[in-house]
């Protein structure tokens, strides 16, 4: 593990809050994401994980506090703006269009074109080739790049989404529950690619409610509970048991343990 504080922060949140009507979804969140690190955000359902990544990824603006990207104060108006700052998000639903082919999905929104207007057209051959190469670089060899993406397995779709983000120059990769719907083996595959992305120098934000998956790849852990930051610790300061305990709400779990004791 490198000395984390030496690496400059890519994304920095200071006292960020978000309200939906009179409901406070997040309050006073401080978080630092560095390059070459996996920052895990853990928490139960409704803890505010999704709200937090929606702010960083530009889906929803924050209501209070400061979000800095590369040291600059920002207020994203759309995911496109966040992308332009190098922040790419792989959502739970993967932001893939099921009936479209693998290569069309790979380049969706950032298509390569050739020729002059009005004859500007998609550079189909190049896009198919690049998509195939990028996927092979991450170690998946798809039988057919023209097949609708719905025909791939859940893990393969995750990897397509990750490869896409890396190809388009993501410096920060946000992964929303990438292992939630996967079996053990497929989860392992995805975790391997998360580690690969980190080693490639990306700042990875890994949202999960599975502390065991998080602990396998995480360098830095933030636990949310009811919109508040309950824990913010480096890997060295934390054991897996402590993490599990925090995740379940620490004291609450102890009470539950006591209650359920047989």
């Amino acid at each position: 593990m490198t000395d984390a504080s030496a690496v400059p922060a890519v994304v920095q949140l200071s006292n960020v809050s978000k309200y939906y009507g009179n409901i406070c979804a997040l309050s006073d969140i401080n978080l630092t994401v560095r390059r070459g690190e996996v920052t895990c955000i853990l928490g139960d359902n409704g803890a505010g994980k999704s709200t937090l990544i929606k702010i960083i990824s530009g889906m929803h603006p924050h209501d209070a506090g400061v979000v800095r990207v590369h040291g600059k104060d920002i207020h994203f108006a759309s995911p496109r703006e966040a992308l332009d700052f190098g922040i790419a998000t792989v959502y739970q639903d993967l932001a893939l269009v099921p009936l479209m082919s693998v290569w069309r999905n790979f380049f969706l929104g950032s298509e390569i074109t050739t020729g002059m207007w009005p004859f500007r057209r998609l550079d189909v051959e190049r896009m198919r080739r690049v998509a195939d190469e990028e996927l092979k670089n991450l170690g998946i060899d798809l039988p057919d790049i023209d097949a609708p993406i719905a025909q791939l397995s859940g893990g393969e779709m995750q990897v397509v989404a990750i490869a896409r983000a890396i190809h388009f120059g993501a410096q920060v990769l946000i992964l929303d529950e990438p292992t939630a719907a996967l079996g053990v083996k497929q989860s392992g595959v995805v975790l391997k690619y998360i580690a690969a992305a980190r080693d490639a120098g990306l700042g990875v934000i890994f949202i999960s409610h599975n502390p065991h998956h998080a602990y396998l790849v995480g360098d830095h852990f933030a636990v949310l509970n009811l919109g508040r930051m309950e824990l913010d610790a480096k890997r060295a300061e934390l054991s897996i048991e402590q993490l599990v305990r925090h995740m379940a709400g620490g004291a609450e779990l102890q009470a539950l343990e006591h209650e359920m004791h047989r």
């Binding site: 759309s78 069309r104 929104g109």
Partner: peptide, 16 residues
């Protein structure tokens, strides 16, 4: 066109 009809949320998320 395929993307907004196939999954508008996904399309928006990737900048369409």
């Amino acid at each position: 066109i395929f993307a907004v009809g196939g999954n508008a949320r996904s399309a928006r998320a990737v900048g369409v």
